[in-house]
Structure formats: C-alpha cells, structure tokens
Simulated assay, not measured.
Amino acid sequence: MKYLETTYDPKNPSIIYVDSVQYELGSFDGKSILYDFPKIVKYLDAKGKLMFGKNFKIYEDDHDLLLKLTSYFVQDHDYCKKLGIDTAKGILLSGPVGCGKTTLMRLLPHLVPHKKAYNFIPCRNIVFGFNGVGFKLIQDYEDTKDYCFDDLGVEHVGRYYGKDCNVMGEILISRYEVFRRKGTKTHITTNLNAEELQEKYGERVRSRMREMFNLVSFSNLAKDKRG
C-alpha cells in the first residue's frame, strides 16, 4: 500500500508532518523532546491508517504495551529504566498470531523520522535467500546495520546443496557478536514463547538472545486484529 512520507521540522523534531498535516508529539526545549503519550497515540493511529488502511486502529487494550514500545523508540532512557527496558538492547516482541506485532514494528520507526530506520525482513524470505546463495547470506548479516527479523520461528530449515542449516539460529549468533562488539541492534517479532524458542534454536542461541533483547509481550489473550 502506498502511503505518504513522514517528515519533521529540523528546528522542532517534536512536530511531524504527513503531507500537509501536522502532528505535535510533545514539547521541544531546544535540546530534548518531552513526549506526550496521548499525542503519540493520536499520531500513530493516523499514520497507521495511511500505511495499513482505514480499518487500522490503536486498541486501548494495547496501551500499556504501546507505552513501553514508544518509550523505547523515542529512547526515553529514564522512563525505560523504570519499565525495566534496556535502551541499548533490541526488542523481541512476542504474542499470538494476528495481534499486531508486525504492524507495530513497521509503524513505530515513524515516531522518529530523524533517525535511520532498521531494515525489516521476514525470516522466511531470509531462508529462501539462503536456499539460493548459501552460507554467504549468513555472513551478509554480520554488518552493522540494524534489522528487524519478522515472524521468527515460522521459517523452514534452510538447505543448500543438500546440507541443512538452521539459518536464523546462525544469523542470531552472528548478530550477537556484532552486538557485543559494536552495539548494533537486532529486533524480532515472534509467535513463540521462550521455551519454544529454545526448542527450535537451542540453548546456545537462547542464552545470547537474553543478552540481546528486551522481551515485550502481548497478552496471550490478545485479540486477532486481522478479522
């Protein structure tokens, strides 16, 4: 779906423009932004409708989770500390099928258009790529770009010239090394819980994920928003 570009006022980054419509996310004192959560929700609802269609909405049931995520994306270090979120780590967003994980992780970077957004890639596409080019693809993710890997856990085992590979497991190990050396962030969405992740990727990967990610979860009772 085509949607309008998000821009901001360089002199006042608390003001965001979508085409000619202005949204004020808080107040700017010349050095930092004091964000206003109700204004953020209003903006995200409007931007979401442009990106995903008129049926998109921000659900009140998700406000607590959204407060955590927005605090992280705007890098409110003090409030994130109160919430138990480490702003130096990535986000692992988990929850049931259809609860809105992918949508939010596509939407939230538009809160901070003055910052470089991460590359958003479905895990199944990565495995398809591996099946075509092999182990070079895993090495490609050893760079210092930020990524969001979508739908971790639904991808198949990769196979290249008859050799099987847990592609995403290997990539996560590589990303862990980059995180340790450079502080480069990786983000993930997944339907799997901690036990299921460990079963699929092993304790070696799971232990590294604990260091790399803040776990933010939808309720298991979160509604399917695709209906």
Rank of each mutant, 00 (worst) to 15 (best):
R106A: 07
L65K: 07
D45L: 01
L65Y: 03
L67D: 06
G153V: 06
K101N: 10
K145I: 05
T144N: 15
I33W: 08
A88Y: 12
K54P: 07
S71D: 11
K39Y: 03
Y118L: 12
L93R: 02
G48V: 06
I138L: 10
L93A: 07
F149M: 10
G132N: 13
L137R: 14
A117P: 10
K101L: 09
D150E: 15
P109G: 10
E142V: 01
V74Q: 04
Y79T: 08
D150A: 07
P38S: 10
I126V: 15
K136A: 12
V154R: 12
F37T: 09
N119Y: 11
K81C: 11
H114Q: 15
K49A: 09
N55E: 15
T103H: 05
L111Q: 11
G84S: 07
V97D: 02
Y141N: 09
G90I: 05
K145T: 09
G98Q: 03
V127M: 01
V74W: 04
L108E: 08
L83G: 03
N55Q: 11
L67E: 11
D151Q: 07
L108I: 06
D64H: 08
L111E: 08
L137D: 03
F149W: 10
D36S: 15
Q75E: 13
Y141G: 06
S32E: 14
L104W: 11
C99K: 01
F135Q: 12
G100F: 02
S94P: 04
F56R: 07
S94T: 15
L104S: 00
V74S: 05
L34G: 01
A46F: 15
T102G: 13
T102I: 03
G153Q: 06
G98D: 00
K39N: 12
K81I: 06
Y147S: 02
L50A: 12
P109L: 12
N119G: 05
I138D: 02
T103A: 14
D64W: 05
V41N: 02
L108F: 04
D143R: 09
P38E: 11
G153S: 10
A117Y: 08
G84T: 02
E60W: 06
G100H: 01
D146Q: 14
D78K: 11
I85V: 14
V74F: 01
Y79R: 13
L111G: 08
K89H: 06
L108K: 02
D146G: 02
V97M: 12
A117H: 13
L69D: 04
C148G: 03
Y35I: 07
L34E: 11
V97F: 14
K82A: 08
N55H: 11
L66V: 03
L44D: 00
K49D: 05
L50D: 14
E60K: 15
R124A: 12
D62Q: 09
P122D: 06
I58A: 06
K68R: 15
Y141R: 09
V74E: 02
F120H: 10
K82I: 00
L66D: 04
D61S: 13
K82P: 00
F130R: 07
K136P: 00
G132P: 00
V133L: 14
A88M: 09
G53T: 01
I138V: 14
N131Q: 07
F37V: 09
G153Y: 04
V97I: 14
Y35R: 07
D45P: 00
L69G: 01
E60D: 13
